[in-house]
């Protein structure tokens, strides 16, 4: 039989990876839209995206639990489409994570897009590049560092999630039992040795990931410095 903690690690990584991919796919257009938006509704959308930063995860989890239950429309639609209950499933914790980690992906991207502004995009248009061409050949390479930051923060934050998952996922091995919940289990059953292993691994993993982000963000500063020395 497989070690339950390794299974939790696998579930965690799968959840975080899937969440990150979904977040990049949803978060990029959302961040672009927010960066270009001039309407006064912009602040409201920004506030909604930022909400998980301040909201207790249990609050978010509580409302998601209700929404995911078959008695309510989202849960009912899901059940009709897939034949399975949404609450307490792997899909539920991925959806929850996407919402919960949204600001960590959208905010750095939005900031990068705002900083990039229109000038280089206009230059691209004048050289015959259409909108998609401009995005993939101008925006993406220039804001690459922000994409890496956004993806890493989204991933790391998802790995460390506890409250939302506990509310909507429960503790089903191989399905919704992730590392942070496994850690909590060990502590509850006074198995501090196993708890230490998980806690140290999570701490070290986060530390390595964050160091990598800061390391990756350094080269751009070098270019700025070189520009300064020239002038």
């Amino acid at each position: 039989m497989i070690n339950p903690d390794l299974l939790a690690l696998y579930t965690t990584l799968k959840m975080a990876a899937l969440t990150t991919v979904i977040l990049l796919l949803i978060g990029t257009p959302l961040a672009w839209f927010l960066a270009k938006m001039q309407s006064r509704f912009k602040v409201i959308i920004e506030a909604i995206v930022a909400l998980p930063l301040v909201l207790p995860p249990t609050v978010l989890g509580f409302y998601l639990l209700i929404a995911f239950s078959p008695q309510y429309l989202p849960g009912e639609l899901w059940q009709q489409a897939t034949g399975q209950q949404l609450a307490f499933s792997f899909s539920a914790i991925v959806i929850g994570s996407v919402l919960y980690s949204m600001p960590f992906v959208v905010q750095p991207l939005q900031k990068a897009f705002e900083q990039l502004g229109e000038p280089l995009l206009e230059a691209g248009a004048m050289l015959g590049a259409g909108p998609m061409d401009r995005f993939f050949n101008i925006v993406l390479p220039i804001t690459k560092a922000s994409f890496i930051t956004a993806a890493s923060l989204g991933f790391a934050h998802t790995v460390g999630e506890f409250g939302v998952i506990l509310m909507i996922g429960g503790n089903i091995p191989g399905e919704t039992r992730v590392l942070s919940i496994a850690l909590f289990d060990h502590v509850e059953s006074f198995d501090y040795a196993k708890a230490h292993i998980l806690a140290i691994s999570l701490l070290a993993g986060s530390m390595v990931l964050l160091s990598a982000i800061y390391l990756l963000n350094r080269p751009s500063k070098k270019i700025v410095q070189r520009g300064r020395n020239d002038s």
Partner: peptide, 16 residues
């Protein structure tokens, strides 16, 4: 703009 076949040299060059 990208379909007009008009070139523009900007004051601030806007090189990539």
């Amino acid at each position: 703009a990208e379909q007009r076949h008009i070139g523009l040299v900007f004051q601030d060059t806007r090189l990539f």
